[in-house]
Amino acid sequence: MKYIIMFLFLLVLISCSSTISTSKKEYQISEKSKLEKDWKYDPKEWTLENQSLNGTGSPEHWAGITSKKDLPENYEITFEINLTSGNLFEVMLNFEGQNYIRTYLYNIDQNIFIGRGIYDKNSDEYGKRGGPTILKKPFDFSSNVWHKVKIQVQNKQLQFIVDENTSLVCSLEKQNLSQKGKIGFLTNGKVQMKNLKIKTL
């Protein structure tokens, strides 16, 4: 009986946690009910099918989804993405208010980027989404190809790695980037995402 009570207490602590991930467990989206409970999104733009998170946006309206809980201070995010149309897929890091860190892949410029972002979910006006670039590196970002993404923030250092061999690194403090907040995803086309894992480091 004592172990059952302890287990239930731990479950309550995890569910009441202010972060989307704990050191004891990786966060994953595996069920529609979990998506609905943990994320803010328009169900016309984001769906979960066969454990694949699918987003549908357009150049005029970027489809956005954001977590309801904050990322931990130090974290690792891994997933695979396939952009089937459009040219932009973006991970919003430490999203707070309207500001966030941009980590994104852009197939017109064929680069990966780290930048400073702004996102107003109620406006599609130019200047109310995206933002200036801080770092970029050439990358063959092909459509209809699965790419592996890994993002780490540890000791205020951000590392953004794509397909295990293209990476960008920057200091949150030196670049005056947001150091806390939620995670989100943006696309101006159609994207599939699978094997999303978020864990505390």
Rank of each mutant, 00 (worst) to 15 (best):
N111D: 11
P43V: 05
E125S: 14
E125Q: 13
I108D: 11
L8S: 08
N99P: 01
Y119E: 11
S23L: 10
D42R: 09
E90K: 11
G86K: 06
G117E: 08
R129K: 14
M92E: 09
Q110M: 04
S85T: 07
S85W: 07
S30Q: 15
L135D: 01
D120C: 03
L135G: 04
P43Y: 07
I29G: 04
S123T: 06
F141K: 01
R116C: 03
Q28Y: 10
I81D: 12
Y100S: 07
L8H: 02
S17V: 08
I114H: 01
I65M: 06
Y41W: 00
E31G: 08
T103S: 02
K24M: 13
N99Y: 14
L10A: 09
P59Y: 00
S30K: 15
S85K: 05
L135T: 01
E26V: 12
P43H: 02
E73W: 08
F113V: 01
D109N: 11
F9Y: 13
Q28C: 12
T47L: 12
F95I: 04
D124R: 04
Q110E: 07
P138Q: 05
S15C: 12
L8Q: 08
T84K: 08
I134C: 02
V91I: 12
Q51L: 08
E90V: 13
L11Q: 11
K44A: 15
L10E: 08
Y119H: 12
P72E: 05
K137H: 10
G115N: 05
S21N: 00
V91A: 01
L11E: 11
A63K: 08
T47W: 08
P72T: 06
T103C: 09
F95L: 00
P59S: 00
K136I: 04
Y27K: 09
F95N: 00
S15Y: 14
I81C: 12
K40M: 15
G130L: 02
E36L: 10
K137N: 02
E80D: 13
E76V: 14
G131L: 05
S30I: 15
L10R: 06
T22L: 02
D120P: 03
Y104M: 09
K32D: 14
M6I: 13
G131Y: 04
I77Y: 00
D38P: 05
Y104E: 06
S17D: 15
I20M: 02
I101C: 03
S21K: 02
N54R: 15
Y100M: 06
I108T: 11
L35I: 07
K69Q: 07
D38I: 02
T19G: 02
K137F: 06
K128R: 12
L88G: 09
E60F: 07
T19K: 10
I108A: 08
L83G: 01
K68Y: 01
E36G: 03
K25P: 04
T22R: 01
L83C: 00
G127P: 07
I81A: 13
